[in-house]
Design a protein around this nucleic acid. Structure first.
Length: 385
RNA sequence: GUGGCUAUGGUGUAGUGGCAGCACGAGAGUCUGUGGAACUCUUAGCGAGGGUUCGAAUCCCUCUAGCCACC
């Protein structure tokens, strides 16, 4: 299921492939979120032309609407949404945190509440109440026919409150055991099924808690390992410290996934150097929709250190803001070196115009570019491992 | 030609003698296991000239421009 094909002499990066129920994908890989069974603005055909090999859906969102039963009645999520390649599903643990930041109404309060037993959710669609525990989260993911299932976890916020993070970690550990148990029961009933399950390491920004979490999760027979929590990706310096601190204890033979990381080429390069194989992030697509388009290039040094791969751009954070008035008559493509459909056919001026009039075509062309840009970046990085 | 009405940021407007506000627009920014959302910051105005007054977008006069009616 996970084959390492090539490894760097200079750092922890490696190129590999993961084999799933729906073919294989090359690592390191960026997985665009299709949370509600759609990558916003793009069709499955678009995604395949871009070179996407794996996407991510969300168990909680799909449970609320259209429900796992409905998806199951279509023969599973692949048939339902017309995507033939690999699908990884998130368990809904993240929404235990993210929904707690959103209020439904003054009377019903916030959309989620975490307890030791599981997570209580209020549907943002109709205010109805739902409860999800580890068993339920795994059942939903199995029912929709996910290729890679994520354990149910309690996503820790990026806070200094160590007591809380410790408590939260205990939940994640307990839920990891329950997730795995339910997964094994369900898999026993479908012997030819090659569905994989990944465990999630929490521990917030605390290195000792992270190490404890890692040791616990790696003691269990998960197929892959994920680092989760608000800190990962959001606080990049701390994310890198965590990866460095865990490095010697991370098993080499399992894919490593940093959840929610991938907003910037700079971030991606740094975590790949530290051995990360998989990541997902809403940012490339959301930034595109909000007018921020990737521009820049990899700079690959030719000395022997191997660590001098970097990214450079004339724009801050490698993001060109297409709304900026300086692009109103700009005849160039978003990025001169990009071979994507958008850059091959459309000018910055036209995209600027489409953005200002909120034309749906803008969302497609912009999202296409950003996902292609990240995917190409990974191709280049893989070649240079 | 005569009479009347009107004139406030780019646009639309509030302000009847006492700190010129609001909305949209424009300019820029935030966004990380989805928020096509939301928010933050910035910008920019009393048609022109004169008078009254401690003080004028506001009252008076002239001019200019627009609209309406009449000849």
């Amino acid at each position: 299921m996970f084959n390492i094909l090539k490894k760097s002499k200079y750092n922890f990066s490696r190129a590999g492939e993961v084999i799933t129920n729906h073919g294989k994908f090359q690592t390191p890989v960026f997985m665009p979120p299709a949370t509600k069974a759609a990558v916003k603005a793009l069709s499955p055909q678009d995604l395949q032309e871009i070179g996407i090999e794996i996407i991510l859906v969300n168990a909680l969102h799909l449970h609320l609407r259209p429900t796992e039963e409905l998806i199951n009645s279509f023969g599973g999520i692949h048939n339902y949404m017309g995507w033939p390649k690999t699908i990884l599903s998130d368990s809904g643990g993240f929404q235990g945190w993210s929904f707690s930041q959103k209020r439904y109404s003054a009377k019903l309060g916030v959309l989620s509440k975490v307890t030791d037993k599981g997570i209580e959710f209020i549907s943002p669609y109709d205010g109805s109440k739902h409860f999800i525990d580890a068993e339920k989260a795994i059942e939903i993911q199995f029912k929709i026919g996910s290729d890679i299932i994520m354990a149910f976890d309690d996503c820790s916020p990026n806070l200094d409150n160590k007591n809380y993070v410790k408590l939260s970690l205990e939940r994640t550990k307990k839920w990891a055991l329950k997730s795995l148990k339910r997964f094994q029961e369900l898999k026993k009933m479908a012997p030819e099924n090659n569905t994989l399950i990944f465990g999630i390491v929490q521990g917030g920004s605390f290195l000792d808690l992270r190490l404890e979490a890692l040791n616990f999760i790696t003691s269990l027979p998960f197929d892959g390992l994920a680092l989760g929590g608000e800190t990962i990706g959001y606080d990049m310096p701390r994310t890198l410290e965590i990866l460095d601190a865990l490095r010697s204890s991370i098993p080499y033979d399992k894919p490593l996934y940093t959840m929610g990381l991938g907003a910037s080429p700079y971030d991606i390069i740094e975590v790949i150097k530290r051995g990360v194989d998989m990541f997902d992030c809403v940012s490339p697509a959301r930034l595109a929709r909000h007018g921020a388009l990737y521009n820049g290039r990899l700079v690959i040094g030719d000395n022997s250190s191997g660590s001098d791969i970097s990214f450079e751009s004339e724009y801050r954070k490698g993001l060109l803001k297409i709304s900026n008035s300086c692009f109103a008559a700009d005849k160039f493509p978003i990025d001169h070196e990009c071979n994507c459909y958008t850059c091959q056919n459309f000018s910055r001026a036209y995209l600027h115009h489409l953005y200002l009039i909120k034309e749906p075509l803008y969302f497609r062309l912009a999202t296409w570019h950003n996902l292609y840009f990240i995917t190409q970046l990974l191709h280049r990085l893989r070649e240079n491992i």
